[in-house]
């Protein structure tokens, strides 16, 4: 289900995999626990949210940490999550959110 992403906020010229998501798309963070240098926080794995913006394509941090090139680059998005869905006991407003940068290979589409 290829989609046309909005213009990246920070375009880069790295060779990259295709951009799958656009602002407004609903996505879920993969719930997986590989070893290594991971920039996807544990607390957000398995949760779903909405793409807030497409930042650009950046080398893969897991690969960079192993002294490899990190290419092809992966699209990076800011994803918005409802706090109430992330923390069941969240005490603030129902529409409080947390926004996190997540690479595309950590995201899967959620059918709406």
């Amino acid at each position: 289900m290829p989609q046309v992403a909005a213009r990246p906020q920070y375009p880069t010229d790295h060779p990259s995999v295709p951009v799958r998501f656009a602002a407004g798309d609903r996505v879920r963070v993969r719930k997986t626990f590989p070893l290594g240098h991971i920039r996807t926080p544990f607390y957000i794995r398995g949760h779903s949210g909405v793409i807030e913006r497409y930042c650009g394509n950046f080398p893969v941090p897991e690969e960079l940490a192993q002294m490899r090139s990190g290419l092809p680059a992966q699209p990076l998005y800011r994803v918005r999550f409802l706090q109430r869905e992330v923390w069941p006991d969240y005490a603030g407003r129902a529409d409080d959110v947390i926004e996190i940068e997540i690479f595309q290979h950590w995201l899967e589409a959620v059918k709406t």
Binding site: R39, R78, A91, G92, D96, I98, I100, E101
Partner: peptide, 27 residues
């Protein structure tokens, strides 16, 4: 976050939506 902000002396009105930004990557 609202408790932490209170500890900093910042009491947000209940009508205000709070957005926390976790800088996990390149931004």
């Amino acid at each position: 976050p609202r408790t932490v902000l209170q500890e900093f002396g910042l009491r947000l009105p209940e009508a205000v939506q709070l957005r926390v930004h976790d800088s996990t990557a390149d931004m």
